[in-house]
Design a binder for these strands. Structure first.
Lengths: 340, 340
DNA sequence: TCGCTTTATGACATCGATGACATTTGTTAT
DNA sequence: ATAACAAATGTCATCGATGTCATAAAGCGA
């Protein structure tokens, strides 16, 4: 790596002069400047960002650990966070954190050091991975959690009310006359799966209806493929449901695909609703009724929390959870139960 | 900002000891370690990444400028690059570059300095934005281009053969008996749009068929919404096509949706093929026949080029273009022309 | 040409953390 | 109890760039 000294030597000037050429070119005589520039070109010099920053005062990008960037949920947040960072004039460095790697500790360490990251953002399910959070505390790193399943007193978090949203969806289906409603759960490791499921039951309880039989709950994992199996299971029941609430949009899209294959019309024969308002929700046919999470709002809040942490660093021991609102988006995939 | 010295003072030890607690905790007596950790907690200390890196030797993350992270194409590359970076032990910092901002120069400058980035990756259409490339050269920044429309002698690039792939798709449709094939073009600013379109024509020429009438070319922009309009246009023709080749998968998904709405079966009444093998291609019904780009291969090559640049920095003036292979993926959305 | 102001350049300290080496403290074996 | 060695901690220099202040060179009026 060539340094400012190499350049200064070749150009026959002092390092400071090279620095001036870089930062305040007008303060250097034209002839000298050209010599220095020539030297820089010849050595393919580019300044060391760390040194510069050390001198000028620290900046640091926000780190994002992603488990599965292909998942609609994570990529949606990823985008929202990028936007929020841009608005706030911050930068984000992304690292893949693939679950059960034996060397995950070393990788996180390396990320904090070499990735020049101090503040981390954790999405589900990482935000519930206790050993990771412990490591971060040891390292003096900070983190903001998005949708953790339980509040952690050490880290601020931003959440939405999954249970209430799921309940709202079911109540909406009730209002369309559905009473036999299937639910495809999410990945068992996500607290959201449990919350959404319990929201379903809560809706039944609140209406004074008997809880749905267990056959109406099929297990999924938030992914398209598993969604297909789950949909097949539900639709093969002797008495299939008239509506299916999938734990996320990708799963709902799978349900729609299976329904089409079986010649069922949506929403005529089957109503399908998803959760997340992922891009896929408006790209499939018919477009999915779903719960829209305020991704951008949440992302902004997260970035803001990181900032706040920087400022009032003295006032420690004060972390909180922010609840953000959701919205039921009614599209084409849901309708009144057929009279047949 | 609290430094290691503040901590050392409060804990009553030397800075070096604090450093040890951080980096080799085992070499510090338990009692001391706890005192230091308490001090760190009390001061909400976190180490300065710049200083650490300066001392340890320079690392720098690779910068990625994204115009539209919501686009399937960009997000697909984004993911592939993340994976490739992980494999190579590098980090990636992402910045949104929203087209025509008046202050884009300042933002790029800031990205290079504060974002601690030296090497940049440019995707279409940024990789063809001449003023940006010029700025990068001035700043001594390096860049690798993905799928630029023309080779730039200053930057290495990685490309695929869009024209040949498009031709291959059309020849495949020919082989199924289609002769009346509609094409929805991509965004006019992307060279890929032009190449894919000319691949279509090339296929006709190669077969000695008359070139398709202009009514069979509808203009799109790679996005779902515009794809709907274009599909409506094509399918409303007095003599509609029996197959539609959309310039990307999102557009193809839109075609599928419109076809469903009109009661056309796929591939019975209409074959639909896309391009990119985006996630949506296998999430819609029926799953789309498409061209798979070797995203990961390309990403690996890009990261490797960045590395190579670091090593043989002396040997400048040597940049090249790498052509990567593509593959036709046949799924459910294409079939023989109906005998009607 | 001399003294004085500007302009151009250089020497040195500094940012915060860590490596190399020095020193102190603790432990074990005799 | 003491040499001998290991463990724990400290001192100082260093990474690369830039701010501060000092110095050298250039410009300029009389």
């Amino acid at each position: 790596m060539t340094t400012i000294y190499d350049v200064s030597k070749l150009a026959g000037v002092s390092a400071k002069t090279v620095s001036r050429v870089l930062n305040e070119p007008d303060r250097v005589k034209a002839a000298t400047r050209e010599q220095v520039q020539a030297a820089m070109k010849a050595l393919d010099y580019s300044p060391n960002a760390s040194a510069r920053q050390l001198r000028l005062g620290g900046f640091s990008s926000i780190g994002l650990l992603l488990e599965d960037p292909a998942s609609g949920y994570q990529s949606r947040f990823h985008q929202a966070l990028l936007t929020a960072c841009m608005e706030a004039g911050k930068y984000m460095t992304v690292e893949l954190f693939e679950g059960v790697m034996p060397d995950w500790k070393a990788r996180v360490d390396r990320f904090l050091t070499e990735g020049r990251v101090r503040d981390l953002i954790l999405l589900p399910t990482l935000c519930d991975f206790a050993p990771l959070k412990e490591l971060l505390r040891e390292r003096g790193a900070r983190a903001v959690l998005i949708a953790p399943s339980v509040h952690d007193p050490h880290f601020p978090s931003v959440v939405m009310d999954d249970r209430a949203a799921a309940r709202q969806i079911i109540e909406y289906l009730f209002s369309l006359g559905h009473t036999r409603i299937g639910h495809i759960t999410g990945h068992p490791d996500h607290s959201a799966s449990i919350l959404r499921r319990s929201g379903v039951i809560e809706a039944y309880d609140a209406r004074g209806l008997p809880r749905p039989k267990s056959e109406l709950f099929a297990s999924g994992d938030f992914m398209f493929k598993k969604g297909i199996e789950a949909a097949e299971t539900l639709l093969s029941l002797p008495e299939p449901p008239t509506a299916i609430f999938a734990a996320n949009d990708e799963t709902a899209a799978a349900v729609a695909m299976v329904a089409h294959r079986r010649g069922l019309s949506i929403p005529g024969d089957l109503s399908v609703v998803g959760f997340d308002d992922a891009p896929i929700a408006s790209a499939v046919w018919p477009q999915l009724t779903t719960i829209a999470q305020p991704y951008l709002e949440m992302a902004r809040k997260v970035v803001h929390l990181v900032d706040a942490w920087d400022q009032q660093s003295t006032q420690s021991g004060f972390v909180s959870t922010y609840l953000t609102p959701h919205e039921l988006v009614i599209r084409e995939s849901s309708g009144p139960v057929s009279k047949a």
